[in-house]
């Protein structure tokens, strides 16, 4: 250690701030250097001299007085309104968060997630309410005094969702485009009812009659229970297609045969019959259906039409059998005549 370094270290050593290794070096230097030793003693002397004039403790009186003045000054500090205090708390919270970044991030993520989920739930709830309102608005609600159909549901059941005093109102389900009610939930001791039902959503589609999808819809139209016109047109369209030979063996013919056998409307049955004509000879099922019509159809025009259609194939034994039956038993004399004429024209069975 040089004298210069020692001079700088002496004050630190006297005040206990010199690291151990430097203290050791300084002690070694002081042993050999008289001037530095004198310097050390001088600084140590200064420290001792200073200790003779210690800091005085403030008197109790002075301390009490200072505290009193501070109290008054603190009382005079405006506390600020609620907003100021809230702002201070918020700032404080931010300060604390900034000292805990992981916690802050976790809180942020949690807040975003909770907010997002809350928003989603709120949105879903609003959508549900709006849908309920739209459905109920769309429902044809009528006063109870008006005719009530069999399937009507009392409006009191849907009252919690419906607005206004609708106790005396009824819903006409036939026109309500409601397919069915699938579930009814009713909490015990509560007047709230949740009704789950399926609605019919009207849609339309246009395309070629040869489109398989259109064909399927037409077949559904054939069995449509509610609208006779739809059934009529569907059968007509399918029959026309079949009459021109564009008719598959499965669903189309079956639909026409069903229409021929079971439809209440003679016009529909006639259309079906016309559609089946090309297949009487080749398809035994079609032939049976036409023969059934000959024998049992309630409408004479249908029966006559059926007879005319089977004329080309009367050589068939089953056809002749039926023609015999019709000629002998049909209530309509004209039909009996036609049948007999047909039997006479054709050569007997070999």
């Amino acid at each position: 250690m040089t004298c210069e370094q020692a001079q700088e270290s002496i004050a630190l050593a006297v005040y206990g701030e010199l690291p151990d290794e430097d203290r050791h070096l300084l002690a070694q230097h002081l042993v050999v250097c008289e001037s530095c030793r004198a310097e050390y003693e001088a600084v140590e002397g200064l420290r001792k001299a200073m200790s003779l004039s210690p800091q005085e403790e403030p008197s109790a009186n002075l301390l009490a007085q200072a505290r009193l003045r501070l109290e008054e000054a603190l009382d005079a500090v405006p506390q600020g309104g609620l907003l100021v205090r809230l702002g201070r708390r918020f700032r404080l919270g931010l300060v604390r968060l900034s000292s805990a970044p992981v916690m802050a991030s976790a809180l942020l993520v949690f807040g975003l997630a909770a907010g997002g989920y809350g928003g989603f739930r709120l949105g879903a709830h609003k959508l549900h309410v709006q849908q309920s309102e739209m459905i109920l608005k769309a429902l044809p609600i009528r006063p109870a005094s008006v005719a009530i159909s069999n399937g009507s549901v009392e409006a009191a059941n849907v009252k919690p969702v419906a607005d206004g005093p609708n106790d005396s109102l009824m819903i006409d389900t036939a026109a309500a485009q409601i397919a069915n009610v699938s579930q009814i939930l009713n909490a015990p001791n509560s007047n709230r009812v949740e009704i789950r039902f399926n609605r019919l959503v009207p849609e339309s589609i246009s395309g070629s009659i040869n489109d398989p999808y259109i064909r399927r819809l037409l077949l559904l139209g054939v069995v449509a229970p509610q609208n006779p016109m739809v059934k009529d047109i569907s059968v007509d369209l399918i029959a026309r297609e079949c009459a021109t030979g564009r008719c598959n063996e499965g669903p189309d013919r079956r639909a026409l045969m069903d229409a021929l056998r079971y439809d209440n409307d003679p016009g529909v049955r006639l259309n079906a019959l016309a559609g089946l004509q090309p297949y009487i000879a080749s398809d035994v099922h079609v032939r049976n259906a036409v023969l059934d019509a000959m024998l049992h159809d309630a409408d004479p025009i249908v029966r006559v039409q059926a007879i005319e259609l089977v004329a080309p194939i009367e050589a068939d034994s089953s056809v002749r059998q039926v023609l015999h039956t019709v000629a002998a038993q049909d209530e309509n004399p004209q039909i009996r005549d036609v049948s007999e004429q047909l039997l006479e024209q054709e050569p007997p069975v070999q």
Partner: peptide
């Protein structure tokens, strides 16, 4: 406050 007052006084 006592330490503060002592320092300030000195």
């Amino acid at each position: 406050d006592q330490a503060v007052l002592r320092l300030a006084l000195h």
